[in-house]
């Protein structure tokens, strides 16, 4: 195997990994940690993409627009938490219905207000060649962002006071409250971070995709699958799940094409859920202790 093919393998792996991590990280917090089955996850992604495109069209530089879009999605997340999600912490199955309704309302409203499609902004220039292959530099930026998101989440949830309080609240809200944690605010901020990460995903993929109101749907299967395979722990679950699924999908995509890649990935998911109903993190966390 030539060096070019080897690099190509790494690049394809990085590409799938970035897609899984970026689309799943927000959901890992909202669904994995908080237990809210957020069917509107894709709409937060769409929100990030649309805000990015809107800002770029107003003349804002792309990178700044993407950061602002993630913040906007995060703030909307806090509002949604306050008015809707807050009522469903003890009723996880009802949260599915409520957020699904929200998702339908949002996609249909966007369709009516903004129209069925808006013009894309184009991927930032930059490509490089290895052997016979040419690659887009921006896809490696996405990989770097995915790694940065994981590092960021590690710092927030493991190294800060807020992280300790948040983990305490998710494990036992009543006890945390009794010890003086302001659980309402912690839930709101956590949901906001989850929504903001979804927005970041949309913002980062906005230049590379067709922009339509239902674009979130292309992310939602992968994000749920990654979180379910990963289990409740964001760092010890989502990240290894993404590595595992990316390896399978990349290998099958490369040898048998996209259909088999998709089938194979979902088959692996079924096997894992069958063997480890609590997800990969149930094994990894136990080992760590």
């Amino acid at each position: 195997m030539s060096a070019a093919d080897l690099f190509s393998f790494f690049y394809q792996f990085a590409d799938v990994f970035a897609f899984l991590i970026l689309s799943a990280s927000g959901l890992a917090i909202v669904f994995g940690m908080m237990g809210i089955i957020n069917m509107a996850h894709g709409e937060f992604i769409m929100c990030g993409a649309y805000v990015t495109v809107g800002l770029v069209n107003l003349g804002v530089p792309l990178a700044l627009a993407q950061i602002l879009a993630a913040i906007a999605a995060g703030l909307i997340g806090v509002v949604v938490e306050y008015f809707i999600v807050r009522r469903f912490y003890k009723r996880p199955l009802d949260s599915l219905l409520a957020t699904w309704g929200l998702s339908l309302i949002v996609t249909q409203s966007m369709l009516l207000i903004v129209g069925s499609s808006i013009r894309g902004i184009g991927t930032p220039e930059g490509s490089f060649a290895v052997g016979d292959y040419t690659f887009s530099t921006y896809r490696l930026v996405l990989f770097a962002c995915a790694v940065a998101v994981l590092v960021g989440l590690y710092i927030i949830f493991m190294k800060t006071r807020f992280g300790v309080l948040a983990r305490a609240t998710m494990q036992n809200a009543a006890m945390a409250k009794a010890l003086g944690a302001r659980t309402g605010r912690i839930y709101a901020i956590s949901f906001g971070i989850g929504a903001g990460l979804a927005g970041l995903c949309g913002a980062l993929y906005a230049p590379t995709m067709t922009l339509i109101p239902t674009m979130g749907a292309t992310f939602i299967v992968e994000s749920f699958v990654t979180v379910v395979v990963g289990g409740a722990n964001v760092l010890l679950g989502t990240a290894p799940a993404a590595i595992f699924l990316a390896m399978i999908r990349m290998a099958l995509n490369a040898s048998y094409g996209q259909i088999i890649g998709q089938i194979g990935m979902l088959f692996a998911v079924i096997m894992i859920i069958r063997i480890l109903p609590e997800g990969l993190s149930s094994v990894l966390v136990r080992r760590g202790r």
Partner: peptide, 17 residues
């Protein structure tokens, strides 16, 4: 042949090259 709804094509692009 690509399933409907697929939006990521890095592998396809390389297969073509």
């Amino acid at each position: 042949f690509i399933p409907l709804g697929v939006s990521q094509f890095a592998q396809t692009i390389q297969n073509i090259q």
